[in-house]
Design a protein around this nucleic acid. Structure first.
Lengths: 351, 351
DNA sequence: ATCACTTGTGGGAGCGCTCCCACACTACCT
DNA sequence: AGGTAGTGTGGGAGCGCTCCCACAAGTGAT
């Protein structure tokens, strides 16, 4: 921490000009040193750095933002009320990844909640005022207007979980397709022959990809896909209960279930238990997310884990690139930026 | 949301100047309208507002910050790693209060974690650059250099939980003294005669106040304070176990324990159970914080609740006043701003 | 009619930077 | 010697506001 001769003659903070005067150079040169330009001689740079240290100079961000038309800040926008944000470890992990990657830079991270209409209104104003250089969007619903607003405002943005195969925004996602495949392949290897799938909310692209993975895994193992074994859910516990009950009614011989989320799996397990089925003896169960609930279920739930912290890091990387390019991916045409990270099957006693 | 003729002729965002031209007035007048000055005639104001709407004008924050020397942003600084932040409902509640109070204003809230040394270093830079108009400091340790840094930089700040009776910063706190009294009085009313107190970390001022409350409640009820019944803890579960074991060794006839936190109470209850004592039959137990753990203990824990959300609101109120006054409380001498909010005893089955 | 305010308004100056053009100087070719 | 790069540097212009002074016009007392 610079602790030298703070507070210049005027009592205010020292300016670039004052540093320049002290170092006996021009304003431009100090600016170059501050911004790490290579076009400065070593001697001059040393002199400027000394002056900076002596005066305790800290650049004025507002002036810089005004002159350079950038803010050195990015926003992590959470389109959920605070409550959910704190409840789900997803966000905490994401934030950890984002924070660690960002600590390498001078960028400032803002956390913005946009759960209520009022908050969304404020956010719109905020974005319109271009108070951030870029936006990280997590947990966006398919019909959310936010992504389009960002495109329209030409603000670089990265979305976690693309809304479709043709997502115009840069995106980071885990391999939903591969994750689903690994879950099904695992169940097949355990000798299960009637594997059902309780899907996620199918308006969510990732949920569709999990269905694709489920289908392909079965097909490639030489099984025919029985559409009656695919029951739509919505990622919720209640949806899991409903879907499981329906599955048992339609296909009583089901001996394995791959659920699109751990919460869904929890709902399914309740129904299985209520109908006298043992897990995994009668019906094996695999979830998705590897959340806390998976570890605490009885029996502990086999689940597909997503590398959330790493996803956060990847989002920052993408976003910083976008910002450096100064144009959103949307306007770059084909050259879309998408990152897909591998998942990992965490085996526990439910399968 | 203003959705009118966005994007002026130049393709960039419209400026004050352009709004002024369009409304047929001067720059100053537009500025006055934007900032709600009363010194504008109704007709002019209407004309300007129309121009603003037509152009979709949004003020440039950087320019405003530069010219007016303010940022319209305040920081909530959490001197803890993210993990603890998410783990404890304290922060979530605090954030809710802060957010709701702030939504009345144009102020932007930044959440800054300063858990690691590296993060603290960044924070120091951040504050030195005066990138916020004020700071909210929660959960500060007595020896933390942050408050002094803020005073030195002359940045308005409000601290939750003063560090001493002579805290120079504006502060908001719950009534630790009264809360402790209510706990002890409650135990007395239940006919307990040997009430012990496991303290919090005594470097924390609030913990000292709780001891004071404990002492005075006993004294005023005509009991002599047995110093042997006061055992120092540190707010942790392990501390609670250690202290409880020590108390039982020293004063085996203890029939009630007032613990300085719910977590401490949880630790104490383990020891009580292990030594064959029933709660509340043999030993009554009262905690502090009314956190989730209190509701989930067996038996559910009687606990002193602090109005955390309200504290958040009060902190914002104080801070906005400080900012309006443009001087930190420290330099205003005697006229210190301290708010103390009442606690509430939540009775459950442990007492 | 004069003076003294008050009210509303325009616009200059300046906030502290970045960007970029101009220029001095050096180095190395022809 | 003249040309042609490159390298380092100074400083003007300008980013979009706010602040404040100047001033016109109106109001009411003397």
């Amino acid at each position: 921490m610079a602790s030298h001769g703070v507070r210049g003659r005027s009592g205010g903070r020292p300016t670039l000009e004052e540093v320049a005067a002290r170092a006996g150079v021009g304003r431009g040169t100090v600016s170059r040193v501050i911004n790490g330009s290579p076009r400065v001689s070593d001697a001059t740079r040393a002199a400027v750095e000394a002056a900076v240290a002596e005066l305790g100079y800290v650049p004025n961000t507002a002036a810089r933002a005004l002159a350079a038309n950038r803010t050195d800040a990015i926003a992590l926008v959470v389109p959920e009320p605070e409550t959910r944000f704190f409840a789900e470890p997803y966000f905490s992990d994401m934030l950890k990844g984002v924070g660690s990657e960002l600590s390498e830079t001078e960028m400032q991270l803002l956390l913005i909640f946009a759960g209520s209409d009022r908050e969304r209104e404020r956010l719109a104003q905020y974005l319109a005022a271009h108070r951030v250089d870029g936006v990280l969007l997590v947990s966006v619903h398919a019909d959310d207007p936010l992504p389009d607003l960002l495109t329209q405002l030409e603000i670089p943005a990265v979305i976690s979980g693309p809304r479709s195969a043709a997502e115009p925004l840069a995106s980071v996602d885990s391999d939903n397709y591969g994750g689903a495949r690994s879950a099904v392949e695992h169940l097949l290897s355990r000798g299960r022959g009637h594997i059902a799938h309780i899907t996620g909310h199918l308006a969510v692209y990732g949920a569709q990809r999990r269905v694709d993975g489920y289908r392909d895994a079965l097909r490639e193992a030489g099984h025919e896909v029985d559409e009656g074994l695919i029951e739509p859910g919505d990622f919720t516990e209640e949806g899991g209960r409903r879907a499981m009950a329906e599955l048992l009614r339609r296909r009583p011989d089901v001996d394995a279930v791959f659920a699109a989320s751990d919460v869904t799996a929890a709902g399914a397990s309740q129904i299985l238990r209520e109908t006298g089925r043992r897990i995994p003896d009668d019906v094996a169960l695999v979830g998705y997310d590897d959340s806390a609930i998976a570890r605490h279920m009885e029996p502990p739930l086999t689940s597909v884990r997503q590398p959330i912290e790493e996803m956060g890091r990847a989002m920052i990387d993408l976003l910083l690139t976008e910002i450096a390019d100064r144009r959103p991916a949307a306007s770059r045409g084909l050259e879309r930026h998408q990152v897909v990270l591998a998942t990992e099957l965490v085996e526990r006693r439910s399968s």
